[in-house]
């Protein structure tokens, strides 16, 4: 009797493992489940009710930084070129300060030029400024140091380091002609209003539809085909920004996602969707805040600062 039972268990498990998937493939069924496609789960064929505000840019609305081809051919231009190299390939040109796989241009999109993508030209004229995080007035050099400590998860370059000089020179050249002390349109990130209704489960669905094909199923990004550096930057894991960085704040990340992601379809996510994705990403593991002890990080892994 026992033998008989075991035999059928074996046969059943074999059937489940071997025959069913093959049969499904032969029938030509696609294996994508309904759970990841909310538009199919609750099909909404009624009149549209949710209205999304989409950003349309008119000519001259945003500051246009100078072209790379117009970098002067002198010592100043050399410094600008060095700064640009560091900015777009931080792991190569500022290797001793970079701690993870990101570049400056992973967050400051399009070489620090994109409005609503934390553009450099809008930031340069605002420093020195009071910063709530440190409760002090910081210069742009100190702000860049913080970028290296938190977002790059590395070591802060000293104020007289050539890398620091090059980055500040590049920022200054990029904001040529921009007014000083003025909030330019496109500064920083767009606004996303506060809400208490966050759901990482919904965020996971949005992630699978709109983020996964670039940033990967495990959120670890995708490397270049030659294996050097990241084509699509990691969102969490060892090679991503640490828990002390600005993007670890859920609303800041939601603002970034809404204004810039996916590339080429900015402002296509609603506030709710971007907040949901943001909290889904916030829940993942990443390097600890260097200003926080290892024990605190172990017991309170998601306490940002």
């Amino acid at each position: 009797m026992k033998r008989f039972f075991l035999k059928w268990v074996l046969i059943f498990s074999f059937y489940n493992m071997a025959v069913l998937p093959v049969a499904a493939q032969e029938l030509g069924q696609t294996l994508d489940s309904l759970e990841v496609r909310p538009s199919l789960v609750n099909s909404r064929l009624s009149l549209p009710t949710q209205l999304t505000q989409v950003h349309v840019i008119s000519p001259g609305e945003y500051f246009a930084p100078p072209l790379v081809a117009d970098i002067p051919d002198d010592r100043f231009g050399d410094m600008v070129r060095m700064g640009r190299n560091i900015f777009i390939k931080t792991g190569v040109y500022a290797k001793r300060y970079a701690g993870n796989g990101l570049n400056c241009s992973s967050c400051h999109l399009q070489e620090g030029r994109k409005p609503h993508g934390i553009p450099l030209w809008a930031a340069y004229g605002r420093y020195p400024m009071y910063r709530h995080k440190t409760r002090t007035v910081v210069t742009i050099e100190e702000r860049i140091q913080d970028c290296f400590i938190y977002s790059m998860d590395g070591i802060a370059p000293t104020l007289d380091a050539p890398e620091m000089k090059a980055l500040v020179t590049y920022t200054k050249w990029l904001s040529k002609g921009a007014p000083v002390g003025v909030d330019l349109p496109g500064r920083g990130l767009p606004n996303v209003s506060r809400t208490q209704d966050l759901d990482p489960k919904r965020g996971k669905i949005v992630y699978e539809i709109r983020c996964e094909f670039c940033h990967g199923k495990d959120g670890k990004g995708q490397k270049h085909t030659n294996g050097e550096g990241y084509m699509f930057p990691p969102l969490w894991g060892r090679n991503s920004y640490n828990k002390g960085s600005g993007l670890q704040r859920v609303r800041t990340l939601a603002k970034f996602i809404k204004g810039n992601m996916p590339l080429g379809a900015s402002f296509s996510l609603t506030n709710q969707e971007s907040l949901d994705v943001a909290i889904y990403i916030w829940l993942q593991d990443r390097p600890r805040n260097p200003k926080m002890s290892q024990a605190m990080d172990f017991f309170f892994p998601n306490m940002a600062r």
Partner: peptide
Amino acid sequence: VKTPRTYGDL
């Protein structure tokens, strides 16, 4: 116009 509306649920 400045901010046209798209239908998020479609």
